[in-house]
Measured scan of single mutants.
Amino acid sequence: DKPLMPYMRYSRKVWDQVKASNPDLKLWEIGKIIGGMWRDLTDEEKQEYLNEYEAEKIEYNESMKAY
């Protein structure tokens, strides 16, 4: 599988927590909350997800070359 983009990594990490805090919200409403949370992160906080993505992207590209 292709590596997940940084925002999607963050979304997967916080989804269950946001859903548990807001059990009556629809999926798109939860997505909207998470989008706002992502925008509110500092560049340093986002960098963690970007670093994970870049590392996985290198691994993915290497595995595709071998294939």
Rank of each mutant, 00 (worst) to 15 (best):
D1S: 06
K2F: 05
K2P: 02
P3E: 12
P3F: 05
P3A: 07
L4F: 15
M5W: 04
M5A: 15
M5N: 15
M5D: 15
P6R: 01
P6A: 09
P6K: 02
P6N: 07
P6G: 10
Y7L: 08
Y7P: 11
Y7N: 02
M8R: 08
M8W: 09
M8H: 11
Y10C: 01
Y10V: 01
Y10E: 00
R12L: 09
R12P: 01
K13G: 01
K13R: 04
K13C: 02
V14T: 01
W15F: 12
D16T: 05
D16Y: 08
D16I: 02
Q17R: 07
Q17S: 13
Q17V: 07
Q17Y: 07
V18M: 03
V18G: 00
V18E: 03
V18P: 01
V18H: 11
K19F: 05
K19P: 00
K19M: 07
K19E: 06
S21P: 00
S21W: 05
S21R: 12
S21A: 14
S21L: 14
S21G: 08
N22F: 11
N22G: 02
N22I: 08
P23I: 02
P23V: 01
P23R: 03
P23Q: 02
P23G: 02
P23D: 00
D24R: 07
D24H: 10
L25T: 04
L25S: 10
L25I: 03
L25R: 06
K26M: 08
K26I: 00
K26L: 02
K26S: 13
L27Y: 13
L27S: 15
W28L: 15
E29H: 01
E29I: 00
E29Y: 00
I30E: 01
I30W: 00
I30D: 00
G31N: 15
G31M: 07
G31Q: 15
K32Y: 02
K32Q: 13
K32T: 08
I33F: 03
I34W: 01
I34F: 00
G35F: 11
G35I: 07
G35C: 10
G35Y: 11
G35P: 01
G36V: 10
G36M: 12
G36F: 05
G36W: 03
G36N: 12
G36H: 11
G36Q: 15
M37D: 02
M37C: 03
M37N: 02
W38Q: 03
W38P: 04
W38M: 03
R39E: 11
R39F: 03
R39W: 01
D40M: 06
D40P: 00
D40H: 05
D40Y: 01
L41C: 04
L41V: 02
L41T: 07
L41Y: 00
T42C: 09
T42D: 10
D43K: 13
D43V: 07
E44V: 08
E44M: 13
E45L: 03
E45H: 04
E45K: 06
K46G: 00
K46T: 01
K46Q: 06
Q47I: 06
Q47C: 05
Q47N: 08
E48F: 05
E48T: 13
E48Y: 06
Y49R: 04
Y49M: 05
Y49P: 03
N51T: 10
N51V: 11
N51R: 11
N51H: 11
Y53K: 13
Y53G: 10
Y53P: 13
Y53A: 09
Y53C: 10
E54S: 05
E54A: 08
E54L: 06
E54D: 10
E54Y: 06
E54T: 05
A55R: 12
A55D: 10
A55P: 10
A55I: 09
A55W: 06
E56R: 03
E56F: 00
E56I: 01
E56W: 01
E56V: 03
E56M: 01
E56Y: 01
K57I: 08
K57W: 09
K57N: 11
K57Q: 13
K57R: 12
K57E: 13
I58P: 08
I58R: 14
I58Q: 10
I58S: 12
E59S: 12
E59D: 09
E59A: 14
E59M: 10
Y60P: 11
Y60A: 14
Y60V: 13
N61S: 12
N61H: 08
N61T: 09
E62D: 11
S63D: 09
S63I: 05
S63N: 13
M64W: 08
M64H: 12
K65I: 09
K65E: 13
K65W: 05
K65C: 09
K65N: 09
A66Y: 07
A66D: 06
A66V: 10
A66N: 14
